[in-house]
Design a protein around this nucleic acid. Structure first.
Lengths: 345, 345
DNA sequence: TTGTAAGCGTTATCAT
DNA sequence: ATGATAACGCTTACAA
């Protein structure tokens, strides 16, 4: 086991000083051609690589991004990570990922842990619990310490910083409009409780779309789910007693559950009821019938977030002006809204 | 914007030396009660937290684990990450995640990047391309430098280190046995190309199960897929022309595609053909019909890997003895193999 | 052209 | 009981 080679070692071996080695490796003009050659040859031969930690300490920069996410077993966040990784790696940054598991305390802990020198800035999607508590002091804290923060998807208005979002309301409206255009009038929505920012926005989009088309909002067709774990039962129950011709679900899990509930009721999708989901993921693509959906371009959101953060870290942007990047959504039509085979009776 | 508080700052403010502050905060008995109180009070008041980078440099330990994965938009790896995070965080470790995207070069780059002081050790699942090339010098390299490595799931025999796997062959055999027990005799397998270690093992399990039950292996019922992106077409094509009473797929994507192919052929699952998948994920759970599967306990694998790595980092294990932890699989029976409604004709 | 020294933030050793 | 110093690995004025 050979320990990592250091400048000191090289200096000792070549009988020069540490600073000479350092300068030679960085092609400083102060160093004579021959010594430079010698040092570089030696370094290459023994595969010298500078120690990141020492560099970080010296430069007070880690070239590391702290990423704090509510969960990861979820296509959307996984794609966000991919996007971030892609950009970060290209620019020579590492990504430290921490999961809050939607817990406020863990989110705070993670940020405190990373804020003590481990990262130069944060990309964060706030935990459900944090949104519920509306306590964002930990975010303000790191910002006050001069660490830039970029919020992604689940953002909070109270914190002033760069943000990357989609227009959730517009995306939802687009989905619902598609249902309306397909002739549906009795459209249920399966959404989250209101304190989940994106859930609320999507609910608003649903409401807007109905109103715009002069369809009376029927509160009885709105199901708000708190915990995804018991969602199937709630959705079964909800759909069993209601007659609808379409369902808009704010995520693909709810959509899949809705289809299941409808089928067990003896209905067929899309022949009897159209179903559309939000946030295009593996499930929507592979489901039978494949699910129409509003895609969220997670990778693009992540890439954009990384880009915004790195720009700020490298001071190429106006210190005072924060931007909110809005990533476009688009409707992906698949089988679950393909109304061709048989007309509604 | 207030910069982070340092020992130096505190020392200056309280008019004592840096070492006094350091000792006071660490409850050194050398320090007088009053000064200790004073220092601690001040530190608490201004929320002093030691700088991780400085500590890392000093201790030559980062308390950070490098995690290199082939991909992440994949339930299995996502759960592995969850498991690792859980254990790592509990023990005060951070996790730096890098994605190889199944590329050899990126895997090497990532490891080199992290090996320069950023992490104390690695947890890695090797890239597909790396398995194909059989080039593992980057792994041996970091091991030679004294950084422990734990391989997860996609392991390589050539490297001696701790490993966490499941018994893929046994799991596959269990799945196939279940099909046989359900009365199937003409069982197709949809698997990966052989250089993917786990794919090959699962294929072996399939073969073993057939032989054990005296069922002749029909090479024509074996489909090996290279690239998941075109898998649907290949699977459609494959199943169209073959008459089978069951399909064993080595991952849930293939299984979903198989069901789709069968349905488009006019068959029903499970009435006409049973389908079973491997690696329990969201898709298997939510699919219609829900897919029977061999669960892989990704979170448990991750947790175990983190535990093994940390034990080695903290030297509580015998330096020379490496272990291979085998996580148990179990069969999860769902609708896709529930053969009740109608007997095979 | 090369080397010395200070400093990044800590902690451990060794004075005082 | 407190402080000065060196060290972790590196860079960069500043000296020589």
């Amino acid at each position: 086991m050979k320990p990592k080679l250091t400048l000191k070692q090289i200096a000792f071996e070549l009988d020069v000083s540490v600073s000479t080695v350092s300068k030679a490796l960085r092609d400083s003009p102060e160093i004579g051609e021959d010594t430079r050659q010698k040092v570089k040859a030696f370094a290459k031969l023994y595969n010298y690589k500078p120690n990141n930690i020492a560099l970080s300490l010296k430069n007070r920069k880690t070239r590391t991004i702290g990423l704090v996410l509510p969960e990861i077993v979820h296509d959307f966040f996984a794609t966000v990570i991919s996007g971030i990784e892609e950009v970060a790696n290209k620019k020579g940054y590492n990504v430290i990922i921490c999961l809050s598991n939607n817990s406020f305390d863990r989110e705070v802990m993670n940020m405190e842990m990373l804020a003590n020198g481990s990262t130069d800035g944060f990309i964060l999607s706030v935990a459900k619990e944090t949104q519920q508590k509306r306590d964002y002091h930990h975010l303000q804290e790191v910002i006050n310490q001069g660490m830039p923060v970029v919020l992604v998807d689940r953002v909070v208005d109270e914190i002033i910083c760069d943000k990357v979002i989609i227009d959730d309301a517009e995306g939802a409206a687009k989905a619902v409009q598609h249902l309306i255009d397909s002739g549906c009038r009795s459209i249920a929505i399966i959404t989250t409780v209101d304190y989940v920012s994106v859930g609320k926005l999507r609910t608003n989009g649903y409401l807007n779309a109905l109103r715009k088309n002069n369809i009376t909002v029927n509160e009885d067709l709105i199901l708000k789910i708190e915990d995804i774990d018991q969602s199937q039962e709630q959705i079964d129950e909800f759909l069993k007693s209601r007659n609808v011709d379409a369902v808009f679900a704010v995520n693909e899990q709810f959509a899949a559950s809705a289809v299941k509930a409808l089928v067990s009721k003896g209905l067929t999708v899309p022949e009897d009821v159209l179903v559309i989901s939000f946030s295009d993921g593996e499930l929507s693509r592979r489901f039978m019938p494949s699910l129409s959906t509003v895609n969220q371009h997670g990778a693009e959101m992540g890439a954009r977030a990384a880009q915004l953060l790195i720009e700020r870290l490298e001071r190429v942007v106006d210190e005072e002006r924060y931007q909110t990047a809005i990533i476009n959504t688009s409707l992906i039509e698949r089988e679950s809204t393909l109304k061709t085979k048989k007309p509604v009776v």
